[in-house]
Each structure stands twice: as C-alpha cells, then as structure tokens.
C-alpha cells in the first residue's frame, strides 16, 4: 500500500526479513511512505508496545531492528506475512544542501540505518561520498557489505577492538579526511557520545554537521517534551539537528 503519511497506527504486512548480524534483522514491509532519509516511524505491536525506528527506506518501508529489549525480541519472532502497525513519518531528517559535494556519512552501531538510505540518495548528487561505519567489534558492524555495493562510494570501517578496518572510533577515521579538507558536510547517526565528539570535530575544522540524536520518542508529535535535547523536541525539531 502507498501512503503519504499515517497519523494512526496502520496494519502492514512484513514482506521480507533479512538477518544482518547475530542480533539485528532488517524488515521490509508492504508499505510505501512519503518520507526522506533521517525521518522515523513508530512501529506498534498491539497490546504490547510501540517504538520509534529510523527508516532504512520508505519505498518499501524498511526498518532495521536490533534485538535489545522486549519489543525488538518480539519483532525478531515475526515471520514474513505477519503484521506490524506503523504511523509516521515523523520528524526532520537529513537535508544535504546542493553546495555539499564532499559528504561524510558517519554511522555508529545501528546508527547506520538512515545513512544507508542517505548514501543512496547522495550517489547521484554529491561528487564524493565517504561512508564511515563504526562498531565496537567486527560482528557488530551493520550494512558494511551494503555500502560496499554502492558505486563511487568510499567505505571506511572502524572497530574499537581492531577486529575489522581501522582500529579506533569513527572520529579517528574522520579526522584525517577533515585534515585533508575533503569533507564539506558531516552527516551522522549513532550514540550521543559519538555525536558529541563529531560535533566538536566539525566545529574544530569548520565543517557543518547534521546529527541524528537518539531519544525515547513518547508522543512522537512534538508536544510531550520527553525527547528534549538542548531545547529541542527531537521527535519534531529532529531527530536530525543542524
């Protein structure tokens, strides 16, 4: 089904489920939404709970879900043909200005979800796209092989324990690029500590950042204030803040 947006939770079927790593699956749903990279949806399992997820794609709606709690555990038990209830899209996503030709997309852990979609939209627009994917250890890396299939995109991997790619954090991978001056915009999603470090780096090198901050979205529509971050309601003003 094709929807512009869904105000109320709407039942959609799961078309396909892919195992990404030992604890992460990607769910492709039988629905299309009018959305752009960085926006999120709320996924509801009736009589259970509803959680926010970044869109990996809107056509068809695709969600990456890591098994970290009761909701994601229940999602991981789902089979193709089962239903999940969606509402959204919500929030402000990434908006890459035409002037940004050398973009660095930085994803930490499951923060890569919206960046893979952004990468695909940027291939045709930006002259140079560098994806930096970070994780604590090699088995936690997500979507690295997907990024690798994108043409004309440089993928750089960083693991904190040196089990894959560079040894260190995404900031260690990004710093040399900033030194070289081959980045004119940083687009990132990941844990707060990583984003705060990127923000600092961006300021240091005078490169603008668009950062997607994670928060527990409660109302999802900008009024309850549960997702407050530095004076912003992340579900409405964000999750991507400039």
């Amino acid at each position: 089904m094709k929807y512009q947006s869904l105000a109320l939770p709407t039942a959609v079927k799961i078309a396909e489920i892919r195992q990404d790593n030992y604890r992460t699956k990607t769910f492709v749903l039988e629905a299309q939404l009018d959305a752009y990279p960085g926006q999120f949806v709320m996924a509801w399992l009736p009589r259970f709970d509803e959680k926010p997820f970044s869109l990996v794609n809107a056509n068809p709606v695709t969600l990456m879900i890591t098994n970290v709690g009761p909701f994601s555990r229940l999602m991981h038990e789902k089979q193709p043909g089962d239903r999940v209830w969606l509402r959204g899209p919500f929030g402000q996503g990434f908006q890459v200005p035409a002037a940004h030709k050398k973009v660095a997309l930085v994803g930490g852990g499951y923060g890569v979800a919206p960046l893979y979609w952004l990468a695909r939209t940027q291939i045709d627009q930006a002259a140079q796209v560098t994806a930096i994917i970070g994780a604590r250890t090699a088995v936690d890396l997500l979507y690295a092989e997907h990024f690798a299939t994108l043409p004309e995109l440089v993928t750089c991997i960083a693991t904190e324990d040196n089990t894959a790619g560079l040894s260190g954090r995404v900031t260690d991978a990004l710093r040399p690029l900033l030194e070289e001056g081959v980045v004119d915009g940083i687009y990132a999603c990941g844990p707060h500590g990583m984003l705060a470090a990127l923000q600092k780096l961006g300021q240091q090198y005078g490169v603008p950042c668009q950062l997607s901050w994670e928060a527990y979205m409660r109302c999802g529509i900008g009024i309850c204030g549960a997702c407050e971050h530095e004076g912003h309601v992340l579900c409405l003003d964000g999750p991507v803040l400039k």
């Binding site: 105000a7 109320l8 939770p9 709320m42 509801w44 709970d49 509803e50 959680k51 509402r87 409660r218 109302c219 999802g220 529509i221 009024i223 309850c224």
Partner: peptide, 14 residues
C-alpha cells in the same frame, strides 16, 4: 507505554 498520544483525525487522544 506507547502508543500514549495519537492524532485520531479530529483531535488528539493522549
């Protein structure tokens, strides 16, 4: 737990 606030078409319900 969520859903804790929705737009039901003619108003909000929270």
């Amino acid at each position: 737990v969520n859903p804790s606030c929705v737009d039901w078409g003619h108003g909000l319900l929270n």
